[in-house]
């Protein structure tokens, strides 16, 4: 009874107090309302402060995420563009893929490899069999060892993978001042920001680095690149390639096409995945709704059942319950 009244007083003091102090008040009031009260309060306040303080210390020491670079050095955050092919119900625009591959082949391929894409993957997505075959045959590949153990050269086949511009990574480094041009097969998945980042990077080269920016020799300034110094120079200029379908080859058009192509090379299964996905969602939601209905139907008799137990009345004895009533 006393405790309850203490609680009431504590509540009356206001909601700003912590429950710890509220407890303290209650405890205090259960004892004589005198000397012990402030000691309890002090102890609890001190221990609360200690707990909060140690948590804070621990968070500041170990809990915060660690940044190796300052936000400026991380690079400018890429703008979010409304990519049509990233929508839930949209496939890649395959005409854009075809243009994008043309840009890759004529521009990017001189430095960047695309090792994970075989020629056959182009068939049925952006090229006819004959076009892809003709492209594959322009390249030479090693044969398997012949009778004498010699390795010869043969023209490429559809089952071959798109060749790299360099024999190996070391050759790539040597040709580019030590900076290896990354393989582009999975680049949209491998870079934070994906399509947006690559588009921003390709189109984000300023005419001149801004005043005060330090650009090392051999590097180029790009605000979107982490560290802002990128070995790749601006490559896309208006009219650099000539599209066969007559699309004006502006810088941003080329960048958009090649980004979509690179997104395809990272996720060639996207079209099929989306199509399958929404079918599964459609069937699945209908199935879920029906399962709810069937469950309610099957359980309705059980849920609406009333079990009643009337204990037999022993002869000569009154039911205690009845007697109580």
């Amino acid at each position: 009874m006393l405790a309850r009244s203490g609680l009431r007083t504590a509540r009356a003091f206001g909601s700003a107090r912590t429950s710890a102090t509220r407890n303290a008040t209650r405890n205090a009031s259960t004892q004589s309302e005198g000397a012990a009260s402030w000691k309890n309060t002090a102890t609890l306040s001190a221990s609360t402060a200690l707990a909060i303080g140690s948590c804070t210390f621990y968070y500041f020491q170990f809990g915060r995420s660690v940044h190796a670079m300052t936000p400026a050095e991380e690079g400018l955050h890429a703008t979010a563009y409304p990519w049509e092919h990233e929508k839930f119900f949209k496939t890649f625009d395959h005409a854009a893929l075809r243009r994008g591959f043309q840009v890759y082949r004529e521009v990017c391929a001189s430095c960047h490899s695309l090792q994970r894409i075989p020629w056959r993957a182009l068939v049925g997505t952006m090229m006819t069999v004959d076009e892809a075959k003709a492209l594959a045959e322009e390249n030479e590949y090693d044969t398997e060892p012949n009778d004498e153990g010699e390795i010869e050269k043969r023209p490429g086949k559809l089952s071959d993978y798109i060749p790299s511009p360099y024999k190996n990574d070391e050759a790539g480094r040597a040709a580019n001042n030590g900076a290896l041009p990354p393989d582009l097969s999975l680049i949209t998945k491998a870079r934070h920001g994906g399509c947006n980042y690559i588009f921003s990077l390709l189109t984000g080269y300023p005419e001149e680095p801004p005043a005060g920016a330090v650009v090392q020799s051999g590097l180029n300034f790009n605000p979107y690149f982490p560290g802002t110094g990128i070995a790749m120079a601006r490559v896309l200029y208006d009219g650099l390639v000539e599209y066969e379908d007559g699309t004006p080859a502006t810088t941003s058009q080329m960048a958009k096409d090649v980004v979509e192509f690179l997104n395809w090379s990272a996720e060639p299964e996207m079209d099929e995945r989306k199509r399958m996905g929404w079918k599964v969602m459609a069937i699945g939601s209908v199935l879920f709704a029906m399962s709810v209905w069937v469950k309610r139907y099957k359980w309705s008799t059980i849920k609406t059942r009333h079990l009643q137990y009337n204990p037999p009345v022993a002869p000569g004895k009154m039911n205690p319950r009845q007697s109580r009533r």
């Binding site: 399958m276 069937i283 699945g284 209908v286 199935l287 029906m290 399962s291 209905w293 069937v294 139907y297």
Partner: peptide, 23 residues
């Protein structure tokens, strides 16, 4: 109505199971 609901539920489940196994 009840048999239709239960039957359609079973049929859709069979459809889903078949496609899952097939995939």
């Amino acid at each position: 109505f009840q048999y239709f609901m239960v039957g359609a539920f079973g049929g859709l489940s069979a459809l889903g199971a078949k496609n899952t196994v097939q995939d």
